[in-house]
Design a binder for these strands. Structure first.
Length: 412
DNA sequence: CGTCCACTGGAATCAAGGGTCT
DNA sequence: AGACCCTTGATTCCAGTGGACG
């Protein structure tokens, strides 16, 4: 037995409901993907020629978040490895463009999955893109196989960097002698292709596969499939899975959400020391997820962004429900002065506000006040807990002790 | 109906900071 | 050490723009 320690009481108190946590993780690749066999077959049919060194068509996979796009591709990758264990005929490369969203990063990732020789690895910064292109192309051509490159969340990269890398990746075959590269792009933005240049558009979308959202029943099946592996299902109330499924079905059939919901519900139950998972746990799990999502975003904000957000909060507290860019900027300048931070230009602050809007932290709409000008109408759109979190941030500690200059006079 | 405000949105550019290469 | 390269955040410039006011 282990010696008693600070964790002992915690571990003992905890009821174990989930046998295997990993299975409920959305990154886990199950052996069975319910309601996706048709899509799997479709894709397999297209890329099967790669096993005999014939280049398959490029594929564009379109579908909302949590419709199983990534899971299906990873599953196929796993199966491909089984079919060709030594990567003699084809190699499967997966890059998530949301995680690495710079051209350099994407290329670096692809290259280092292909290049096995440690001495030839590409440094994570420092080279020119041209050089990586050249090096990668040369390396690929020393082999004689089909490279299947999966670019997940491909639209993220495109938004930031345009289509240069896609151009390179789709034209690479013209300079290759022995090997061939085929691209599988995954996007959740159906309109993504509209913004591509025509040439790349037709190349990338040689084959298109649409992943429709799951409906309630399908979500239930998916959850159930995982639940029997992960749980002692006796410990789940009967209405838990249907409830999780129903909640996520409202959110466009997002299976990832459904799984998160189930996992966190069980987590909360365990932590409370309850011995069953109930619908009430699901409810609090839902709240927790929503809150976590926002606080995660807040944490990664730059100092300047936080200051801008703080300005919006301050203005709201001063009784301004809606405000203009100018209002925010005034407060922003004031806050910067108090906490001793350099101020940005109004143009930049306006940009930061737009970013906060896109993140859903504030609500901003451009509105014209006629002759009184045109500006954004900004509203705070954040739960209390988050506001508290921002305010308690260390960078604003000077602000608390500081008494704001009286701007409005209210006589009682 | 035209004017004109107070910004917006986009593009080009800069500076700093990460790094490699010779 | 100096020449380059990429990324990121910030800056500068400038041509719009919706609609209340005159």
């Amino acid at each position: 037995m282990t010696e008693p320690n600070v964790f002992t009481q915690y571990i003992q108190k905890r009821n174990v409901i989930v046998k295997n946590k990993k299975i409920l993780q959305s990154s886990y690749i199950p052996d069975k993907l319910p309601h996706r066999t048709d899509k799997i077959n479709e894709i397999v049919e297209i890329i099967a020629p790669s096993l005999s060194k014939d280049k398959p068509s490029n594929i564009l996979i379109i579908g909302k978040t949590g419709t199983g796009k990534t899971a299906v591709m990873n599953y196929i990758g796993k199966e491909l490895k089984k079919a060709d264990p030594n990567r003699e005929n084809c190699a499967f490369i997966y890059v998530n463009c949301e995680v690495v969203d710079t051209p350099y990063g994407i290329l670096y990732n692809i290259a280092n999955q292909i290049i096995t020789d440690p001495s030839k690895r590409i440094p994570f910064t420092g080279w020119s893109l041209d050089k990586i292109f050249a090096e990668l192309t040369a390396y690929i051509d020393t082999e004689d196989k089909i490279f299947i490159v999966v670019l997940d969340e491909i639209d993220r990269s495109f938004q930031k960097n345009g289509d240069d890398i896609f151009y390179y990746l789709t034209t690479i075959n013209e300079v290759l002698n022995s090997s061939r590269v085929s691209i599988i792009g995954i996007t959740n933005n159906a309109k993504f292709t509209e913004f591509l240049s025509p040439k790349i558009k037709s190349r990338l979308g040689e084959e298109k596969i649409i992943f429709p959202p799951y409906n309630v029943n399908q979500l239930q099946d998916i959850l159930y499939e995982r639940a029997i592996e992960a749980f002692d299902t006796e410990l789940l109330d009967d209405d838990v899975i249907p409830y999780c499924a129903a909640l996520s079905a409202q959110e466009m059939g997002d299976a990832r959400r459904a799984l998160d919901l189930l996992r966190i519900s069980a987590d909360i139950a365990e932590r409370n020391g309850d011995n069953r998972v109930t619908a009430a746990h699901v409810k609090s799990a839902k709240n927790k997820i929503e809150l976590d999502a926002v606080s995660e975003v807040i944490k990664t904000l730059t100092v300047q962004s936080k200051t801008v957000l703080m300005s919006v909060i301050k203005n709201t507290e001063e009784g301004m429900d809606v405000m203009t860019t100018g209002d925010v900027f005034t407060t922003y300048k004031w806050i910067c002065e108090v906490i001793g931070q350099s101020t940005l230009t109004q143009r930049r602050v306006a940009g930061l506000i737009s970013e906060l809007d896109m993140l859903g932290i504030v609500h901003a709409r451009v509105k014209s006040f006629g002759r009184a000008g045109r500006t954004k109408e900004i509203e705070l759109n954040t739960p209390k807990e988050i506001v508290g979190m921002v305010k308690s941030d260390e960078i604003f500690k000077d602000l608390e002790s500081y008494r704001p200059p009286k701007q409005t006079t209210l006589d009682f």
